[in-house]
Each structure stands twice: as C-alpha cells, then as structure tokens.
Simulated assay, not measured.
Amino acid sequence: MARKNKSRGGHNPNRPRLWGKHAVAAALDNPERRVLKAWATRDAAGFMQFPPGLPLVIAEAPDLGRMVPADAPHQGVVIEVEPLEDLWLGDVLAEAPERAVLLVLDQVTDPHNVGAILRSAAAFGAIGIVTQDRHSPPESGALAKAASGALERMPWVRVVNLARALEEIAEAGFWRIGLAGEAKDDLKTALGPPRVALVLGAEGPGMRSNTREHCDALARLPIGGGMESLNVSNAAAVALYAASIA
C-alpha cells in the first residue's frame, strides 16, 4: 500500500529514534521506512541485519542509554529514521476486503497505549487505525517499542476531522460501533455487519459527543462488577478479539 507524503512525512523536522530488537528489525524490513543511522553494541551489531551502506556506530550500552529516555529498554540497538509518509483514508477503505475491522481512536494521546493498540490491531487482523492528527502521538521510540514491530506493518491514517472521517467510513459500508461503558447493549449484540469500525475514546472523558453522534451504535464490554473500566489499549484488544470471531 503506497504511503502519501502529506504532512507527517514531509514536514516533520524531528527524526524519531527507535530502539529495541523488534522495533528496529521491523523498521529495517520495511521498504517504506528510511533508516538514516544506527548505533549498536558489538553483540547487537552481530545479529541485527543492517543493510550495506547504513552508517553504523559501535557503542557501549551506557552510551546508548543516554540516547533514549531514562530506563528505556534499548536492547543494544538504536536507529534514527525519517517518519513514515502519510496514508489517505480513501486508499485504506478502497483496499478493505468484504469482511474487515477498522479501529478509530478519538483523542487517545498516550504513545504506549497507541503502540499497544497497533500491536493488537496487527495481531487480530485489523485493516488499520484512524486517529485525529492534532490529538494523537507522533512516531517515537516509546510508541514503536510498545507496538513491537506493528508500527511498520499496520496502516495508520491521520485525519484532520474525525467526524468527517467517520462519515467517509460509513460511506464505505462500515458499521460504526462506539465503545461506551454506559451503553445499553454489549459489543456482542452490536456486532453483525461484515465491515465494522470500532471507535474508542480517551481514558476518562471517553468519546466526544460529536464522535458519538457519528456512530451507528454504542456498545459496552461485558466487564464484571469488580472493575469499572479497562485501560483503552486493553479494551481495544478485547473488542478486536470479539470482532474477529463474530
């Protein structure tokens, strides 16, 4: 799937640094990812398949530790990359199979949560995730590490207007289900159509009212009385599993 150079790829002056074996290996395997430079311990350099011509600096583990956030598990390897180019929502929808699940995140901003959601989306066969450009985290080492390689494989569409995107998703034949703890129906009841868009809001405030209005149904996860709610990344994983077996 071709990525379009729109805003994230062409105008982001920051070059993310990714770390950890899975995140780095996935970036190296992604033909659409431009890797600029690598740093690695001698041991890590021995098993990481760095392409010929990539500038590589052999470094000690403490030196790598100073290149990443405190206590980040770099596992002996760090790379500097160009951000991936943007995807168009229309392209993702046009390539959707007859039976498909799409994730829509309404102002979920924590990079660890978004990374974990990318990982679950890849694990359960979602066709992509959609976020609002101004209210979602940029690519980063923390997000890529949480995604464990899924950042390079899962289509991630950033849009300006989420409500308009939800309208476009509906026009493509997707049944839009917003997850809300106070909903009357559980997710199993709301599922049914072969194309489903699962819409999740940020922890605490949940979905905004305009986002709710652009959902075809609201549904809740059948959580026991001992817990009021789940972390948004856990909720996404449960919802994706339910949709995958429906």
Rank of each mutant, 00 (worst) to 15 (best):
A150E: 04
A180N: 06
D86I: 03
V130N: 03
N161A: 04
I129E: 06
K37F: 04
W88L: 15
V24R: 03
P155D: 05
E167P: 00
A122L: 08
R17G: 12
L64G: 15
L166W: 10
R158K: 15
D63E: 15
E171Q: 13
R33W: 04
P55S: 08
L54Y: 11
P97S: 04
A70G: 01
E168V: 04
D71Q: 14
A44H: 10
A38W: 12
A235K: 03
C215Y: 02
F174E: 08
A100P: 10
G226I: 03
R134E: 12
W175M: 03
L118C: 11
I177Q: 07
R153G: 01
A163K: 13
F174R: 07
A25P: 07
V199D: 02
V68A: 13
A45R: 11
L179E: 02
V157R: 00
K21A: 12
P222Y: 05
S7I: 15
P194G: 04
M207D: 00
K4D: 09
L89T: 04
A217G: 01
L36I: 07
A61E: 11
E167Q: 15
P62T: 09
R8G: 05
F174S: 09
D216C: 01
E213S: 09
L89C: 03
R66W: 03
N12K: 10
L18T: 07
G46K: 05
Q75L: 03
L151F: 11
